[in-house]
Design a protein around this nucleic acid. Structure first.
Lengths: 211, 211
DNA sequence: ATATATATGTTGCAATTGCAACATTATGAA
DNA sequence: TTCATAATGTTGCAATTGCAACATATATAT
């Protein structure tokens, strides 16, 4: 994800954070931080660590909505966290900068570093939108097999390699693809048997033409 | 969708469009405009009309990725239109402003109207991200019934009413929900029979507690 | 007005997928 | 190390859904 402080000097970064009344927080692993961040007007920027946004319905079906790593941003304004069935959980100890949306928008500054900040924010939003589109793209496939293959295609393209390293475990992968874990496991077995893929831990090798 | 020119005077809007080297195009109904807009560096802003982004796979399965109305923006940078199986089709004659992404980012202006433009752009991106999240939210439901009910919930909440007016026809709704149209039709029948909904053309009345 | 294309409704049947109920393996804490 | 917890793998069976093949209705063009 693009750096929110790209092309901003350390000095100007400090000024900016002061003007925007930014706060920095560090959250412990496994901490549920949903409540702390449900403020309509806060935008959070992940400096380090990993945070997941998860939905779990009354039947126990989990959906992995989003995995946020360093550089990513979130907010109840544009992330799915306002609903009761959504949770934000810290996967790896995370440090987060919190800034008020109104402070960003109402800021009456014409300094170059503020303009640069806006440009960086825009770049991050575009990347984020791209990621959401990819997720939708994957969920629009009609079968488990095609969801898996589309996921592999996207990941393979992103890293320019026929090796795909899963950013999370298989249980989470099923939750990201919105399919039953056992059915996914069965389909992965078939894909292995038919010589499409090779699986070694979290590394999947694509043995077919990736187009 | 927020107005991209909100809080910018007519005079400044003209200046801005000149500086950003913006072009305005009008496209006819049913026109396939995919090719014309696949430029990596163009951002399009819909001034009027309706444009749809559609994916169709080799089996003929269509997915309605996005319906763009006045105010909305798109780009091969952050919309799903770079792939061969994607199409942008004009539903209602549409007028579109095209601006180069580099012109926006490399613009070295500190005028208030440029900053306002960036703020407006940011607001639109947030709204767009919100819409994508809603779509994902709906697709994360595990059954046809729950996808329909989640769609109704989102629409009902958005307009604060128990009447839901479909923005497209039932065939497109099935493509938006990524389900078989016939199976959806069957499920809608059950929902009617069980007294959950009432359907009159494109108006659906929710007869249950919408929480 | 008439024809043609498109949208909608219906339903039996087959295929895919989810669920349950396990066994096995890996991970992490005390 | 040892125990507990979480992740992974497996498979029979039932349920849901997609598909096909229609009929009917609506919209659009000439």
């Amino acid at each position: 994800m693009a750096d929110i402080f790209a092309n901003i000097s350390k000095k100007n970064k400090c000024k900016l954070l002061k003007i925007l009344e930014a706060n920095t927080h560090t959250f412990r692993k496994n901490e549920d931080i949903t409540g702390k961040l449900k403020n309509e007007n806060l935008i959070g920027i992940i400096l380090s660590g990993v945070v997941e946004i998860i939905r779990e319905d009354y039947d126990g079906n989990r959906t992995l909505i989003e995995e946020l790593e360093a550089g990513n941003i979130f907010s109840s304004k544009f992330s799915s966290i306002e609903n009761v069935d959504h949770t934000m959980v810290v996967i790896d100890e995370a440090t987060v900068i919190l800034i008020g949306y109104n402070e960003i928008i109402n800021c009456d500054l014409d300094k170059d570093y503020y303009i640069q900040f806006m440009k960086n924010l825009l770049a991050i939003f575009m990347e984020k939108l791209q990621e959401k589109n990819e997720h939708l793209e994957i969920l629009s496939r009609r079968s488990i097999r095609n969801k898996l293959l589309e996921y592999f295609r996207v990941m393979s393209k992103k890293h320019g390699s026929r090796f795909v390293y899963l950013p999370f475990n298989f249980t989470d992968l099923a939750d990201y693809l919105v399919i039953d874990r056992c059915a996914m496991s069965r389909e992965l077995k078939y894909l292995k048997e038919e010589g499409f893929i090779e699986v070694k831990g979290k590394r999947i090798t694509l043995l077919y033409d990736r187009r």
